[in-house]
Design a binder for these strands. Structure first.
Lengths: 197, 197, 197, 197
DNA sequence: ACTTAACCGAGACGGTACGTCATGTCTTCCA
DNA sequence: TGGAAGACATGACGTACCGTCTCGGTTAAGT
């Protein structure tokens, strides 16, 4: 039942019906279900959307564990790819946007979906600090934001456009080495940042 | 007249009325104005919101021009402070969110407000590259995102919370030097990069 | 429900609200009912008025059957009395007037209410012709109009004024004998035909 | 100016626009005139309609004066013909209907147009009584209504249909001689209508 | 000829009503 | 018992008119 209703909602979205036209009445009609049946399960449209989001949430990526850098690359890549997922992309962006106007629901979404993901990245960063891959004099949160933030900037400024393949790699490299002037006196080829490889 | 209407909308928002309850009828009633008067000026609720956003747009900060670093610090600080603006903060965040569901309007907001701001930062970054303050082997956009992105991460994850005073400074420092392990063998003190001032 | 709405409409009319101020919004408000509830039952204001008219339609009078003349007197009297009906009178006149601007509805009212009434009178007239009470060389319709028409003239020219008690009797008498000069040579009194009763 | 406005109203009516869609705004637009210009001349839509009616009022017919009967025939014929007037007919009927909901205006129309016409017929009837053409024992009003009423019945029951050519003649004849059984030369007291049963 | 008033079109204004739609609650009736 | 069906009160939607009101821009007369 629950499924039938969510499927109906998705079906409508995929038909091109804009999110703002997704009334409960319409979903009920499409699902061949009484309105009351929907209200019995969700307190409102937005709560239904939340479940709809969870429906599409891709699984967390499996981390290689070879190094903090590699793990972070994997995580950033999963962020990038999520932005490309066929059905989701634009649709889900709008769902999220809509849901943001319901603080309670957004809070729950953040708590159960966004925050855990952030926590996972943070854990990797902390491990990287412990292993000497990251500077120990910086807060893990700062390092995390320095890596993930640039990723989001792309989607803000180029909505709809696919993120470049090497974006994760380039962000990681730049963030690790810094964007300040290269220490020229150093003659070393510097290839990978950690010299004693 | 236009002002009176926008003021009425803001007044309602400040009374705690949620954005979703901001019907045109209500705004008109509050402003003591006929509905037609609103429709004569804006094609719909969201277009009105766009003007409401512009209303609160703070002026662009004046750049010191002493160095790219100082200019960027000023720009990041203005981003931070904008998040604290008394009336706006949470309210405007919601307005933006709402408006995102109207692609046309959002596109215009981006074009006339967001993009120019980004362009200003990018110009500073380019100058910094030319002056040798930033690595020349990186795209200006990447450097820009590396600095601005982390700023936004804060507001995403801690909505409503004020951004720490030294956030801009810490982001700049970390981004310039990189978050990879410090090149310890180097004995030079390399003086912590002086902040703006 | 239907009743409650019609009652509300009548209540407003009786309060002296002019028909032109009888908006559906107002009726709904007075009846404590949503607008949709009204639109679910009637396609518009005028259709509602039609039901309002039917509400007040008095029952057809019972005919004595003693003679065509007596039956017609009864029918004319019922026309006269209908003009005096307490609540209706002026109000209903206006309702009818209003409804006339909706050809379809007026057609229906005529078909279901007016025409049957006319047919009933015509039937009596035809019987009267067959029985020799009326001239056989005249069309029944002409005779009918000659009797009913004068009745209506009164209401046209003296709106609101009550019709005189003996109007039906006087019309009948005059129509039967004709308004031309009396055939003087005839000395017979020919006793004005005693009315019903 | 006044004319231009009335013409515009008529033009719209003749285009088939229903009376209910004849807003002042529309008339003003069609006439190429400001709304205020209309309001300066008429207090409202219905008052304008009144002038519109007067516009179409045909001239009173010229009476032959040969006899009351002939004069009345002429008057009845003019009533009949008025119902056929090309532009007016249905349109004007609706205008009248509409105007009836404004008691004041209707009263004025009645006083200045309808009543004088009735008075003219009544005068002829009175003359007919004096000349012995009509029974002297009947009120002139009754005789008048007996002649004019049947005329109106036709338009009530067959709206739009043209009135038959000989209608006036037939009404006059029937009314003068009466619709009761003809006083056959038969000397018998006429007891049962069909003698040779 | 120059001013000044009247009048014009245009259309904005605060309102009210239109008829439609969606909300969330509530029966009703069927399986 | 629980679900579909949908009626219900509420209220926003965007449009159209209402009747009043400024606006400038002609005209016209009066000086």
């Amino acid at each position: 039942m629950e499924r039938a209703i969510l499927e109906a909602a998705v079906a409508l979205l995929e038909e091109g019906i804009p999110l703002s036209a997704l009334s409960i009445e319409r979903i009920a009609r499409t699902a061949g279900v009484g309105k009351a049946t929907i209200y019995r399960r969700w307190p409102g449209k937005e709560a239904l959307f939340l479940d709809l989001l969870r429906e599409f949430e891709p699984p967390d990526p499996e981390l290689p564990g070879t190094s903090a850098r590699d793990d972070l690359w994997t995580l950033l890549e999963s962020v990038r790819r999520r932005g490309l997922a066929q059905r989701s992309s634009v649709i889900l962006h709008n769902v999220i946007v809509e849901m943001k106007s319901h603080p309670t629901l957004w809070e729950e979404y953040h708590r159960t979906v966004v925050a855990p993901r952030r926590e996972a990245t943070l854990a990797v960063v902390r491990r990287g600090i412990a292993d000497g891959e990251f500077r120990a004099d910086l807060e893990p949160e700062l390092i995390n934001d320095l890596l993930v933030g640039p990723m989001l900037m792309h989607t803000v400024h180029r909505p709809g456009a696919p993120l470049p393949d090497d974006l994760a790699e380039r962000i990681l490299a730049a963030a690790l080495q810094g964007v300040g002037p290269r220490p020229q006196p150093d003659p070393r080829p510097e290839a990978t940042p950690h010299p004693a490889g």
